[in-house]
Simulated assay, not measured.
Amino acid sequence: MRWYVIRRVAWAAVVAFVILTITFLFLEITPDQQVAQLQFQAAQSGGDPEAALDAYEQRRGLNQPLWDRYTEYVTNYVQGNWGWSDTRSEPVLDAIVASLPYSIMYSAPSIVISTVVGMGIGLYSALNQYTKTDYAATFVAFFGISIPNFWFGIMLLLIFGETLGWFPIIFQTSIADTQTFSLANLRQLFLPIVVLSTGAIAGNMRYARAEALEYVRAEFVKTARAKGATGWRMLSRHILRPTLVPLSTLLVGDLLGLLLASSLLVEVVFGIPGVGRLSYDAIINQDTDLVLGTVFIPVFISVVGNLLQDIAYTVLDPRISYGDR
């Protein structure tokens, strides 16, 4: 298993290196909007647009050879120097580090809740197929998958925030203390957690139910029933473990969806200054370095998540070969 883990770690490093290279090539072929803006401002003020362009390229290192720029780009990312945010007047990594705790505050509970509740309902539904509880769980799943997070968040704010006044409408960073737990912070995070968890619970439930149904009627499960295995023992030892092998892939996908797509929409709706809102503002303001930095976060999570997923496969399913022989 040791060599298997070493190979997977090496492959994860290669994937990260390829992603950095592709990102660099996209940067090279993408027109820089700031160049046209600087030249226009120089022309308006009576200056020389070409001189402004030369100064800009020299300041950004764009006058160096392509290979030198590429090696400097990769080296900077490996060393943690992800560029400078012009809109925030600070290093990109500092901006991400400052915003990341706000995203973790609601995304981490959402992942835990959606995983435990979704898989629990899915496994229970598979063991009680075609019953009233199974139909109710199926309805909840279709509701969670079909409803848009953006619209759902706005409706929750209007009903429980504006009309009933149970939860605050505006996210207050002053009470979002990341070091200690506070009831006031939980109140303003409750609705974002509900929005993210709803769709994720539905997806986890449907996948868990579909995978568990493959083993409910399996021969080894029938044998275990004949020997007297029932209830939690049947579920945990004979159905849950083989079901977790394909579901571990779903967990990585849910994590990326929550941190990238869903978090961006939710943070815009609820005004949370997390990574999703940071990426949205960077795109609107055409802050290239900041956009790349915020996009690289889910890419890094994807690489690490798939690495942990491959290792989890070998632990959950002993039939998987390590390839050592």
Rank of each mutant, 00 (worst) to 15 (best):
G83W: 07
V15I: 11
A218R: 00
W84V: 13
T75E: 12
Q309N: 12
L213E: 01
Y106I: 06
W151Y: 09
F181A: 01
T115M: 01
S110I: 02
G122W: 01
I301W: 07
T30C: 15
D48M: 11
Y313S: 02
E267W: 02
D281H: 03
I104Y: 13
P318S: 15
V266F: 00
D310G: 09
G47L: 15
F171V: 10
P192E: 10
T180A: 01
V303C: 04
M1N: 06
V268M: 11
V9S: 14
L213C: 05
V304E: 02
S110V: 03
I175P: 09
G122H: 04
S182K: 05
R59L: 15
N63Y: 09
I113K: 04
I22P: 06
S262R: 00
L20G: 00
L290M: 07
Q79M: 14
I111C: 04
D310Y: 06
T23L: 07
G144S: 11
R237C: 09
L307M: 13
F26D: 08
R325C: 08
N185M: 00
V303A: 02
A208S: 15
I147H: 01
Y106K: 01
A312M: 04
Y77G: 02
K227P: 04
W67Q: 02
W11R: 14
I201P: 00
F142K: 06
L100N: 05
F190P: 05
N81R: 11
D289G: 09
Q179C: 05
L53S: 12
A108T: 07
G61F: 10
Y102I: 08
D287L: 09
P148E: 07
Q179Y: 12
D134P: 00
A126R: 01
I272K: 04
G228S: 12
A210G: 05
F40R: 12
A95M: 08
Y215H: 11
L189Q: 09
